[in-house]
Design a binder for these strands. Structure first.
Length: 572
DNA sequence: GCCGTTTTCGGCCCGACTGTTTTCAGTCG
């Protein structure tokens, strides 16, 4: 197991950028580290490989100085530059930058005039009036800071699913190499494919008593020691500052232990009640029928003993799923089209041809390119001239027999009045259009709902992108009446996106049933900005499965012609 | 710090909103 993988390296580079920024360093040097972080994040495959074969050294935005930092991080898990910066600038200031509304300038003012170095001190100052009294601060800023700190405190207990999954997978591999471990299963929220994860839980089958396994835990790579243990469970502290629960079971009740470790609590309660109604007792780590021990070596044997079909972990949430028929849930292989990605024409890192090659290798039969529109100036949104150049390029790629069909799309900003970002004669030239809100998040709920609903009435509108604008653990959704959005989308025959970027996962799986009941078609979009982003589809599929979606509910399970028919159906 | 040459250093993304002011600095996407 490598000491640190690309998300860890990217995070370290971002931190270096923040520290340099707070120190008042040249802003272009700061930006160099930020872009390098994004480049690293976009590397497909192991970072050590990209270092060894020289491809990282050749990547845009990676020069000799940053390459040296990355090499040090990959080889030792540390960076001298970062260590020096940490000694120089209080780390609490970096945390303050995550509060929406606080940037480098304001954090520096807070530090220099009030001598504040931690979030806790900042919270006190925001409460007692000292913060509001600073120049160009005010009562509203103080309130926002208090809200921001509360949000951060809550968010700090959670990790995004892709980080948690990386962590769980690496740990599971290491545990698989411990002597006498017979099988390793990832359980908990990661297995249920929750969008955020509080605790990594792993179940081990061993042919020796648990304490013999536990003796090896502290010496695993990335482990920082044991936080606590009983006769069958241990909590392992990890270098990343997180913890993982390790549960050891003999093989004869693996099924019950795995189900218990997977949760959710509501599902287990419903399962236990169902067991009781059938004369069983589901208690702790085993299933009993009266005083007879019922072996459950697999989860299937547990569910079947209770007269139930095996329930996929993604569906084990409210408890209402117990006793219901299990649908054949969407699988990654059902998706024919890859939608929503950005190229170098706006803020993506790769070309049309590069994305086409990766999507083809992933088994897609068509790919919809959707760069930003011109209102998204910060992201290099496309001017009409760029659009024509890109169309020519797409035509050329299609003419070169790439083994995949490339469609001309756009992610058009939904402007504040609900209009799209180009006149109809330009919109008409695209094969399909994703409409998204990227500005003016602070409208009232009614105004935002009107804005989005009005946009969907355009005959060129195909898919509503990331419908609530949330960024998991960092930004709340903007207020919007989703029921009304669903109603209008169904009426206008517009699809709504599940954005598969693990920072978004928007729509939320909890509202998918309502969307389907309203008659809304769902589209899975990756929002890829680089080649690694193509594999984010797995998180979107997780959301779709949690929402109980089957393949006929998903627009890009259709072939290219079927997809285009949907997109063209409302055009004049 | 990186890039792209004009092979040695100048240029690098910006428009609009927010909260503070009463003209604009700072933040955001």
């Amino acid at each position: 197991m490598p000491v640190i993988e690309r998300t860890g390296v990217a995070r370290a580079l971002e931190q270096i950028a923040s520290y340099l920024d707070l120190k008042g360093e040249n802003s272009f040097r700061v930006r160099a580290f930020t872009t390098a972080a994004r480049t690293v994040e976009g590397v497909s495959g192991p970072l050590a490989e990209a270092l060894a074969d020289g491809s990282l050294a050749k990547a845009k935005g990676i020069g000799p100085a940053i390459l040296e930092v990355i090499t040090e991080l990959v080889e030792s898990g540390r960076a001298t530059l970062l260590d020096e910066l940490r000694a120089d600038v209080p780390p609490g200031l970096i945390e303050m930058l995550d509060i929406s509304g606080l940037g480098v300038a304001k954090v520096r003012t807070i530090h220099q005039t009030l001598g504040i170095t931690t979030l806790a001190e900042l919270e006190v100052a925001a409460g007692d009036g000292r913060l509001a009294a600073l120049p160009r601060f005010g009562e509203r800023t103080a309130q926002n800071v208090l809200k921001g700190i509360a949000f951060l405190r809550e968010a700090s207990q959670w990790r995004l699913v892709h980080h948690a999954t990386d962590e769980a997978t690496a740990l599971a591999e290491a545990l698989g190499r411990v002597p006498h471990v017979v099988a390793v299963h990832i359980a908990g929220e990661v297995r249920r494919r929750m969008e955020t994860v509080r605790e990594v839980i792993i179940v081990l089958v061993a042919d020796v008593p648990p304490e013999e396994i536990f003796r090896h835990l502290a010496s695993l790579p990335g482990a920082r020691g044991i936080a606590g243990q009983d006769e069958r469970r241990a909590t392992l502290r990890l270098a990343a500052g997180t913890a993982a629960q390790i549960i050891v079971t003999p093989p004869q009740n693996l099924g019950t232990v795995l189900a218990q470790a997977t949760g959710s609590d509501a599902h287990l309660n419903a399962l236990a009640a169902h067991a009781t109604s059938r004369g069983f007792t589901l208690a702790g780590t085993a299933l009993w029928e009266g005083s007879r021990f019922v072996p459950t070596p697999t989860e299937e044997s547990l569910y079947h003993a209770l007269g139930l079909p095996w329930i996929p972990p993604e569906l084990r949430e409210s408890g209402a799923e117990v006793g219901m028929p299990v649908p054949r849930l969407l699988e990654r292989g059902d998706l024919r089209g890859f939608l929503h990605c950005h190229t170098t024409y706006s803020d993506g890192n790769n070309s049309v041809a590069e994305l086409a090659a990766v999507c083809r290798a992933d088994g897609y039969s068509y790919l919809g390119i959707t760069d930003h529109s011109r209102a998204a100036a910060y992201a290099g949104g496309m001017q009409p001239d760029d659009i024509r150049r890109q169309w020519d390029e797409i035509d050329a790629v299609n003419a070169s027999n790439p083994g995949i069909r490339v469609l001309k799309g756009i992610e058009s900003d939904i402007l504040v009045d609900g209009s799209l970002d180009y006149p109809d004669d330009i919109l008409a030239g695209f094969d399909f259009i994703i409409g998204s809100v990227h500005s003016r998040f602070t409208l009232s709920r009614d105004e935002m709902t009107d804005r989005v609903c009005r946009a969907m009435t355009s005959p060129y509108f195909t898919i509503l992108g990331h419908p609530t604008g949330r960024l998991l653990l960092s930004r709340e959704a903007y207020p919007i009446d989703l029921d009304r959005v669903f109603e209008v989308a169904a009426r206008e025959k517009v699809a709504i996106e599940i954005n598969a970027d693990p920072h978004r996962l928007d729509l939320d799986w909890r509202v998918l049933a309502a969307a389907r009941a309203a008659g809304v078609m769902i589209s899975l979009g990756c929002d890829a900005h680089n080649l690694a982003g193509v594999s984010n589809m797995t998180w979107g599929v997780g959301v779709a499965r949690k929402g109980g979606l089957t393949r006929d509910a998903v627009l890009n399970c259709r072939d290219a012609e079927g997809f285009l028919r949907f997109a063209r159906a409302r055009r004049p």
